[in-house]
Amino acid sequence: MKLSHRQRLTLAWIGLALVGLALIWLLKPVLAPFIAAAVLAYALQPLVERLTRRRVPRVLAVALVEVGAVLVLLAIALLIVPILSKELPLLREQIPVLAQQANTHLAPWLKQFGIQVSLDVPSIKAFVLKYLDANLEDWLGTALSSARIGGSLLLTLVGNLVLLPVVVFYVLNDWPQLVERAWSLVPPRFREPVGGFLSECDQMLGQYLRGQLMVMAALAVFYSVGLALAGFDLALPIGVFTGLAVFIPYLGFGLGLLLALLAGVLQFASLYGVLAVAVVFGLGQLVEGFFLTPRLVGERIGLSPLMVIFALLAFGHLFGFVGVLIALPLSALGVVAWRRTRNAYLDSPLYQG
Protein backbone atom coordinates (compact mmCIF):
# COMPACT_ATOMS: atom_id res chain seq x y z
CA MET A 1 0.00 0.00 0.00
CA LYS A 2 1.44 3.32 -1.06
CA LEU A 3 1.40 6.00 1.59
CA SER A 4 0.50 9.60 0.89
CA HIS A 5 2.84 12.46 1.64
CA ARG A 6 0.81 13.44 4.72
CA GLN A 7 0.87 9.86 6.04
CA ARG A 8 4.63 9.60 5.54
CA LEU A 9 5.09 12.91 7.32
CA THR A 10 2.92 11.74 10.21
CA LEU A 11 4.89 8.51 10.54
CA ALA A 12 8.13 10.48 10.46
CA TRP A 13 6.97 12.71 13.31
CA ILE A 14 5.83 9.67 15.31
CA GLY A 15 9.23 8.04 14.75
CA LEU A 16 11.04 11.19 15.87
CA ALA A 17 8.84 11.37 18.97
CA LEU A 18 9.61 7.73 19.84
CA VAL A 19 13.35 8.29 19.34
CA GLY A 20 13.14 11.39 21.53
CA LEU A 21 11.35 9.49 24.30
CA ALA A 22 13.91 6.69 24.10
CA LEU A 23 16.78 9.18 24.40
CA ILE A 24 15.09 10.87 27.36
CA TRP A 25 14.69 7.52 29.10
CA LEU A 26 18.30 6.51 28.44
CA LEU A 27 19.72 9.88 29.51
CA LYS A 28 17.35 10.50 32.44
CA PRO A 29 20.16 10.72 35.07
CA VAL A 30 21.83 13.47 33.02
CA LEU A 31 18.62 15.21 31.98
CA ALA A 32 17.07 15.35 35.46
CA PRO A 33 18.75 18.65 36.55
CA PHE A 34 18.05 20.22 33.14
CA ILE A 35 14.37 19.24 33.29
CA ALA A 36 14.12 20.63 36.82
CA ALA A 37 15.88 23.81 35.66
CA ALA A 38 13.45 24.20 32.75
CA VAL A 39 10.46 23.84 35.09
CA LEU A 40 11.90 26.37 37.54
CA ALA A 41 12.77 28.77 34.75
CA TYR A 42 9.24 28.57 33.37
CA ALA A 43 7.81 29.29 36.84
CA LEU A 44 10.17 32.21 37.47
CA GLN A 45 10.06 33.72 33.99
CA PRO A 46 6.94 35.93 34.60
CA LEU A 47 8.73 37.63 37.53
CA VAL A 48 11.74 38.34 35.32
CA GLU A 49 9.49 39.82 32.63
CA ARG A 50 7.81 42.09 35.18
CA LEU A 51 11.18 43.47 36.26
CA THR A 52 12.38 43.94 32.68
CA ARG A 53 9.20 45.88 31.86
CA ARG A 54 10.22 48.26 34.64
CA ARG A 55 13.51 48.85 32.80
CA VAL A 56 15.60 46.59 35.01
CA PRO A 57 18.43 45.06 32.94
CA ARG A 58 17.59 41.44 32.16
CA VAL A 59 20.77 40.04 33.70
CA LEU A 60 20.09 41.90 36.95
CA ALA A 61 16.42 40.87 36.90
CA VAL A 62 17.37 37.21 36.45
CA ALA A 63 19.91 37.44 39.26
CA LEU A 64 17.43 39.08 41.65
CA VAL A 65 14.67 36.57 40.93
CA GLU A 66 16.98 33.58 41.23
CA VAL A 67 18.54 34.81 44.49
CA GLY A 68 15.06 35.38 45.87
CA ALA A 69 14.00 31.85 44.86
CA VAL A 70 17.10 30.35 46.47
CA LEU A 71 16.45 32.26 49.70
CA VAL A 72 12.86 31.00 49.77
CA LEU A 73 14.01 27.40 49.28
CA LEU A 74 16.64 27.79 52.02
CA ALA A 75 14.01 29.24 54.36
CA ILE A 76 11.78 26.24 53.73
CA ALA A 77 14.68 23.86 54.36
CA LEU A 78 15.61 25.69 57.56
CA LEU A 79 12.14 25.02 58.94
CA ILE A 80 13.42 21.52 59.68
CA VAL A 81 16.22 22.85 61.93
CA PRO A 82 14.07 23.89 64.93
CA ILE A 83 12.11 20.66 64.60
CA LEU A 84 15.26 18.53 64.77
CA SER A 85 16.89 20.61 67.51
CA LYS A 86 13.75 20.29 69.63
CA GLU A 87 12.89 16.68 68.86
CA LEU A 88 16.28 14.95 69.03
CA PRO A 89 16.79 15.51 72.79
CA LEU A 90 13.18 14.44 73.44
CA LEU A 91 13.66 11.46 71.18
CA ARG A 92 16.74 10.41 73.14
CA GLU A 93 14.80 10.56 76.40
CA GLN A 94 11.49 9.09 75.27
CA ILE A 95 12.48 6.10 73.11
CA PRO A 96 13.57 3.91 76.09
CA VAL A 97 10.43 4.98 77.99
CA LEU A 98 8.21 4.12 75.03
CA ALA A 99 9.96 0.76 74.63
CA GLN A 100 9.34 -0.02 78.31
CA GLN A 101 5.68 0.97 77.99
CA ALA A 102 5.37 -1.28 74.94
CA ASN A 103 6.69 -4.20 76.98
CA THR A 104 4.34 -3.39 79.85
CA HIS A 105 1.10 -2.65 78.00
CA LEU A 106 1.37 -3.67 74.35
CA ALA A 107 3.09 -7.06 74.71
CA PRO A 108 0.38 -8.63 76.96
CA TRP A 109 -2.35 -7.46 74.58
CA LEU A 110 -0.57 -8.90 71.53
CA LYS A 111 0.06 -12.15 73.40
CA GLN A 112 -3.69 -12.79 73.39
CA PHE A 113 -3.47 -13.12 69.60
CA GLY A 114 -0.45 -15.40 69.69
CA ILE A 115 2.06 -12.64 68.90
CA GLN A 116 5.14 -12.69 71.10
CA VAL A 117 6.80 -9.27 71.45
CA SER A 118 9.57 -8.47 73.88
CA LEU A 119 11.75 -5.40 73.37
CA ASP A 120 15.29 -5.36 74.75
CA VAL A 121 15.10 -2.03 76.57
CA PRO A 122 18.77 -1.91 77.71
CA SER A 123 19.98 -2.51 74.14
CA ILE A 124 17.59 0.14 72.79
CA LYS A 125 18.80 2.61 75.41
CA ALA A 126 22.44 1.89 74.55
CA PHE A 127 21.70 2.36 70.84
CA VAL A 128 19.94 5.67 71.49
CA LEU A 129 22.74 6.99 73.65
CA LYS A 130 25.28 5.99 71.04
CA TYR A 131 23.62 7.54 67.98
CA LEU A 132 21.43 10.33 69.36
CA ASP A 133 23.79 11.64 72.02
CA ALA A 134 26.64 12.30 69.62
CA ASN A 135 28.20 15.72 69.45
CA LEU A 136 28.86 17.76 66.32
CA GLU A 137 32.29 16.23 65.74
CA ASP A 138 30.87 12.70 65.83
CA TRP A 139 28.09 13.60 63.42
CA LEU A 140 30.60 15.26 61.10
CA GLY A 141 32.87 12.22 61.21
CA THR A 142 29.95 9.93 60.37
CA ALA A 143 28.92 12.17 57.49
CA LEU A 144 32.45 12.25 56.06
CA SER A 145 32.73 8.47 56.38
CA SER A 146 29.44 8.03 54.55
CA ALA A 147 30.62 10.45 51.89
CA ARG A 148 33.73 8.35 51.30
CA ILE A 149 31.64 5.18 51.02
CA GLY A 150 29.07 6.68 48.66
CA GLY A 151 31.39 9.15 46.97
CA SER A 152 29.86 8.76 43.52
CA LEU A 153 26.33 9.46 44.78
CA LEU A 154 27.52 12.43 46.82
CA LEU A 155 29.44 13.83 43.85
CA THR A 156 26.37 13.51 41.64
CA LEU A 157 24.16 15.21 44.23
CA VAL A 158 26.56 18.10 44.80
CA GLY A 159 27.12 18.45 41.06
CA ASN A 160 23.38 18.70 40.41
CA LEU A 161 22.93 21.24 43.20
CA VAL A 162 25.66 23.40 41.69
CA LEU A 163 24.50 22.87 38.11
CA LEU A 164 20.82 23.60 38.72
CA PRO A 165 21.06 27.36 39.53
CA VAL A 166 23.58 27.87 36.72
CA VAL A 167 21.27 26.28 34.15
CA VAL A 168 18.27 28.21 35.51
CA PHE A 169 20.21 31.48 35.17
CA TYR A 170 21.19 30.89 31.55
CA VAL A 171 17.72 29.64 30.57
CA LEU A 172 16.05 32.69 32.14
CA ASN A 173 18.57 35.07 30.62
CA ASP A 174 18.20 33.58 27.12
CA TRP A 175 14.45 32.92 27.38
CA PRO A 176 13.32 35.33 24.60
CA GLN A 177 15.96 33.99 22.19
CA LEU A 178 15.10 30.37 23.03
CA VAL A 179 11.40 30.99 22.42
CA GLU A 180 12.13 32.78 19.16
CA ARG A 181 14.41 29.98 17.91
CA ALA A 182 11.87 27.31 18.83
CA TRP A 183 9.08 29.26 17.14
CA SER A 184 11.15 29.66 13.95
CA LEU A 185 11.28 25.86 13.63
CA VAL A 186 7.49 25.62 13.38
CA PRO A 187 6.33 25.57 9.72
CA PRO A 188 4.33 28.72 8.88
CA ARG A 189 1.19 26.74 7.97
CA PHE A 190 1.20 25.13 11.44
CA ARG A 191 1.92 28.27 13.45
CA GLU A 192 -1.70 29.23 14.07
CA PRO A 193 -2.82 25.87 15.57
CA VAL A 194 0.50 25.40 17.39
CA GLY A 195 0.28 28.93 18.78
CA GLY A 196 -3.25 28.31 20.01
CA PHE A 197 -2.22 25.04 21.62
CA LEU A 198 0.79 26.60 23.37
CA SER A 199 -1.27 29.57 24.50
CA GLU A 200 -3.88 27.26 26.05
CA CYS A 201 -1.12 25.20 27.71
CA ASP A 202 0.53 28.34 29.08
CA GLN A 203 -2.79 29.58 30.45
CA MET A 204 -3.53 26.22 32.09
CA LEU A 205 -0.06 25.95 33.65
CA GLY A 206 -0.30 29.51 34.94
CA GLN A 207 -3.63 28.71 36.54
CA TYR A 208 -2.18 25.52 38.01
CA LEU A 209 0.79 27.32 39.58
CA ARG A 210 -1.35 30.13 40.98
CA GLY A 211 -3.89 27.65 42.34
CA GLN A 212 -1.17 25.50 43.88
CA LEU A 213 0.41 28.51 45.60
CA MET A 214 -2.96 29.48 47.10
CA VAL A 215 -3.50 25.91 48.33
CA MET A 216 -0.03 25.87 49.91
CA ALA A 217 -0.57 29.18 51.69
CA ALA A 218 -4.01 28.19 52.97
CA LEU A 219 -2.80 24.82 54.27
CA ALA A 220 0.26 26.37 55.92
CA VAL A 221 -2.03 28.68 57.90
CA PHE A 222 -4.51 25.88 58.66
CA TYR A 223 -1.95 23.38 59.98
CA SER A 224 -0.07 26.03 61.97
CA VAL A 225 -3.23 27.30 63.66
CA GLY A 226 -4.61 23.79 64.21
CA LEU A 227 -1.43 22.47 65.82
CA ALA A 228 -1.08 25.65 67.91
CA LEU A 229 -4.62 25.25 69.25
CA ALA A 230 -3.75 21.64 70.11
CA GLY A 231 -0.82 22.90 72.20
CA PHE A 232 2.12 21.88 70.01
CA ASP A 233 5.36 23.75 70.73
CA LEU A 234 6.50 23.31 67.13
CA ALA A 235 3.17 24.24 65.55
CA LEU A 236 4.56 27.02 63.34
CA PRO A 237 7.52 25.22 61.70
CA ILE A 238 5.63 21.94 61.26
CA GLY A 239 2.49 23.67 59.94
CA VAL A 240 4.35 25.93 57.51
CA PHE A 241 6.56 23.07 56.30
CA THR A 242 3.57 20.76 55.75
CA GLY A 243 1.62 23.42 53.89
CA LEU A 244 4.51 24.27 51.59
CA ALA A 245 5.54 20.64 51.09
CA VAL A 246 2.15 19.70 49.62
CA PHE A 247 3.58 21.05 46.35
CA ILE A 248 5.06 17.52 46.14
CA PRO A 249 1.80 15.54 46.11
CA TYR A 250 1.39 12.88 48.82
CA LEU A 251 5.10 12.83 49.67
CA GLY A 252 5.04 16.32 51.17
CA PHE A 253 1.92 15.63 53.20
CA GLY A 254 3.35 12.29 54.39
CA LEU A 255 6.57 13.90 55.59
CA GLY A 256 4.66 16.65 57.43
CA LEU A 257 2.39 14.05 59.04
CA LEU A 258 5.41 12.03 60.18
CA LEU A 259 7.04 15.10 61.75
CA ALA A 260 3.78 16.04 63.48
CA LEU A 261 3.29 12.52 64.87
CA LEU A 262 6.86 12.47 66.14
CA ALA A 263 6.38 15.85 67.79
CA GLY A 264 3.06 14.81 69.34
CA VAL A 265 4.37 11.53 70.77
CA LEU A 266 7.52 13.11 72.17
CA GLN A 267 5.94 16.27 73.59
CA PHE A 268 2.86 14.75 75.20
CA ALA A 269 4.08 11.15 75.72
CA SER A 270 0.48 10.00 75.50
CA LEU A 271 -2.27 9.15 73.07
CA TYR A 272 -3.37 12.79 73.04
CA GLY A 273 -0.57 13.79 70.66
CA VAL A 274 -1.52 11.11 68.13
CA LEU A 275 -5.23 11.96 68.35
CA ALA A 276 -4.55 15.69 67.99
CA VAL A 277 -2.44 15.09 64.88
CA ALA A 278 -5.11 12.75 63.48
CA VAL A 279 -7.82 15.39 63.96
CA VAL A 280 -5.81 18.32 62.57
CA PHE A 281 -4.37 16.47 59.59
CA GLY A 282 -7.64 14.64 58.93
CA LEU A 283 -9.52 17.93 58.76
CA GLY A 284 -6.70 19.36 56.65
CA GLN A 285 -7.07 16.54 54.14
CA LEU A 286 -10.83 17.05 54.01
CA VAL A 287 -10.44 20.78 53.44
CA GLU A 288 -7.78 20.22 50.80
CA GLY A 289 -9.49 17.32 49.04
CA PHE A 290 -13.06 18.61 48.98
CA PHE A 291 -12.61 22.37 48.82
CA LEU A 292 -9.13 23.81 48.14
CA THR A 293 -7.68 21.49 45.49
CA PRO A 294 -10.92 20.95 43.52
CA ARG A 295 -11.69 24.67 43.49
CA LEU A 296 -8.18 26.07 43.01
CA VAL A 297 -6.28 23.33 41.15
CA GLY A 298 -8.34 20.32 40.08
CA GLU A 299 -10.95 22.22 38.11
CA ARG A 300 -8.19 24.13 36.35
CA ILE A 301 -6.24 21.15 35.02
CA GLY A 302 -9.10 18.65 34.67
CA LEU A 303 -7.41 15.62 36.26
CA SER A 304 -9.27 13.05 38.35
CA PRO A 305 -7.63 11.72 41.56
CA LEU A 306 -6.98 8.38 39.80
CA MET A 307 -5.16 10.13 36.96
CA VAL A 308 -3.16 12.18 39.46
CA ILE A 309 -1.94 9.01 41.19
CA PHE A 310 -1.11 7.36 37.84
CA ALA A 311 0.79 10.43 36.64
CA LEU A 312 2.82 10.62 39.86
CA LEU A 313 3.75 6.93 39.70
CA ALA A 314 4.57 7.00 35.98
CA PHE A 315 6.69 10.15 36.00
CA GLY A 316 8.32 9.15 39.28
CA HIS A 317 9.35 5.83 37.73
CA LEU A 318 10.77 7.52 34.63
CA PHE A 319 12.53 10.51 36.19
CA GLY A 320 12.68 9.83 39.93
CA PHE A 321 12.11 12.74 42.31
CA VAL A 322 12.15 15.29 39.47
CA GLY A 323 9.42 13.28 37.76
CA VAL A 324 7.17 13.69 40.79
CA LEU A 325 7.64 17.46 40.56
CA ILE A 326 6.80 17.71 36.87
CA ALA A 327 4.06 15.05 36.78
CA LEU A 328 1.04 17.31 37.22
CA PRO A 329 2.22 20.20 34.98
CA LEU A 330 3.02 17.81 32.11
CA SER A 331 -0.23 15.95 32.71
CA ALA A 332 -2.02 19.28 32.37
CA LEU A 333 -0.40 19.69 28.94
CA GLY A 334 -1.57 16.18 28.10
CA VAL A 335 -5.12 17.19 29.02
CA VAL A 336 -4.95 20.11 26.58
CA ALA A 337 -3.61 17.85 23.83
CA TRP A 338 -6.30 15.25 24.52
CA ARG A 339 -9.10 17.82 24.42
CA ARG A 340 -7.92 19.19 21.09
CA THR A 341 -7.46 15.70 19.62
CA ARG A 342 -10.89 14.63 20.83
CA ASN A 343 -12.57 17.74 19.41
CA ALA A 344 -10.79 17.25 16.08
CA TYR A 345 -11.95 13.63 15.99
CA LEU A 346 -15.58 14.53 16.80
CA ASP A 347 -15.56 17.14 14.02
CA SER A 348 -13.91 14.83 11.47
CA PRO A 349 -15.72 12.85 8.74
CA LEU A 350 -14.36 9.67 10.36
CA TYR A 351 -16.70 10.20 13.35
CA GLN A 352 -19.61 11.90 11.63
CA GLY A 353 -19.72 9.35 8.83
Results as ranks from 00 to 15, higher is better:
218 A>S: 14
271 L>M: 12
18 L>M: 10
203 Q>F: 13
198 L>H: 05
215 V>W: 00
164 L>I: 12
261 L>P: 01
166 V>M: 08
352 Q>E: 12
129 L>V: 14
54 R>N: 11
174 D>Q: 11
348 S>V: 08
77 A>H: 08
72 V>D: 10
5 H>P: 13
310 F>R: 10
249 P>L: 12
211 G>V: 00
130 K>H: 14
6 R>N: 14
57 P>K: 03
238 I>D: 01
156 T>Q: 11
95 I>C: 06
64 L>W: 12
134 A>D: 13
68 G>M: 09
125 K>E: 15
47 L>S: 13
187 P>R: 08
227 L>S: 03
242 T>P: 01
172 L>T: 04
96 P>F: 08
232 F>W: 02
58 R>A: 05
26 L>N: 07
117 V>F: 13
34 F>L: 13
125 K>F: 12
121 V>E: 02
323 G>C: 04
99 A>K: 03
73 L>D: 09
240 V>A: 06
156 T>W: 11
292 L>K: 00
44 L>I: 05
262 L>P: 00
15 G>Q: 09
177 Q>N: 09
137 E>I: 09
153 L>T: 13
34 F>W: 12
79 L>C: 07
194 V>Q: 05
218 A>E: 05
227 L>E: 02
57 P>R: 05
99 A>H: 02
41 A>S: 13
37 A>W: 01
290 F>D: 05
159 G>P: 02
352 Q>N: 15
122 P>K: 10
135 N>L: 12
338 W>A: 15
190 F>W: 14
286 L>P: 02
224 S>R: 01
